[in-house]
């Protein structure tokens, strides 16, 4: 446990000791701010029967942030250490692969959640200046953040996997972008097929876009929760096997 906390703190500090953390924070703050601005423009018009979080979700910046920020966070996790050689000094200390993976994953997840804080700030601002607080129900905000957290878990585990495969951060970033984007595009593929097809049904289980839409609307369905968690564990398990592979190569 000590090794886990030591590593996790070091990883998280690592983001802010390099420029990565600040660039990411600046980038997401800008995008969230931009979508907040367009959201306010929308609200000036006629009343819309949607929660604010759903309106935010509809601005398309949501997925942009997710698909860009996650690979940038995760690319350095293992690839950087392998490239600089510190992976060797790390793995020759009495820590287990699992501790290393858990520390890196949770540090990335923590940074990812920090990146979403500006959204929370926007919601509070809105709540403060609005006359009708019903559009900003705490439950809806909670379910949105639950969705953000779960999709984040899944994408970060994909990123961990990509980063463990290679020594190059660029390659790691590209692999995780490809994995994340293809998973995201599955939702559109399902729409193209006739709904009666079994393929369409299977694909619709992976329709992240619609599932996230539900979370933003305040609907928490257990099926996507189970899906995201099990996929996260699956990819973390694969990462663990990749880390262990040096022992049977």
């Amino acid at each position: 446990m000590q090794a886990y906390w030591t590593l996790m703190r070091r990883e998280l500090a690592g983001f802010f000791l390099s420029i990565t953390g600040y660039v990411l924070l600046a980038g997401t703050t800008f995008l969230v701010g931009f979508s907040f601005w367009s959201l306010l423009r929308n609200l000036e018009g006629d009343s819309i029967p949607m929660p604010v979080t759903e309106l935010f979700y509809m601005t398309a910046f949501f997925w942009l942030i997710l698909l860009l920020a996650v690979p940038v966070i995760t690319m350095r996790l293992f690839a950087h250490e392998k490239f600089s050689g510190t992976y060797e000094t790390l793995m020759t200390t009495p820590v287990s692969d699992l501790q290393v993976l858990a520390a890196k994953f949770s540090a990335a997840l923590a940074l990812y959640m920090i990146l979403w804080l500006p959204l929370l700030a926007c919601i509070f601002i809105l709540r403060h200046y609005t006359s009708d607080p019903t559009g900003l129900d705490a439950g809806v905000v909670g379910s949105t953040f639950l969705g953000i957290f779960l999709v984040g878990c899944l994408f970060i585990s994909l990123g961990c996997f990509a980063s463990a495969l290679t020594r190059s951060q660029m390659t790691a970033a590209m692999i995780s972008v490809v994995l994340c984007v293809s998973l995201f595009l599955v939702s559109f593929l399902a729409k193209q097929l006739p709904t009666s097809d079994w393929q369409a049904q299977v694909l619709s289980f992976f329709a992240l876009r619609d599932q996230m839409h539900d979370f933003a609307r305040g609907v928490v369905d257990t099926r996507p929760v189970v899906l995201y968690l099990s996929l996260t564990f699956f990819f973390l398990f694969l990462t663990l096997r990749v880390l262990g592979s040096r022992r049977w190569k």
């Binding site: 000791l17 600089s84 510190t86 000094t89």
Partner: peptide, 12 residues
């Protein structure tokens, strides 16, 4: 153990 080329965390 000190590996060859002595890798360190240069940002610490």
């Amino acid at each position: 153990y000190m590996p060859e080329n002595n890798p360190l965390h240069l940002d610490m």
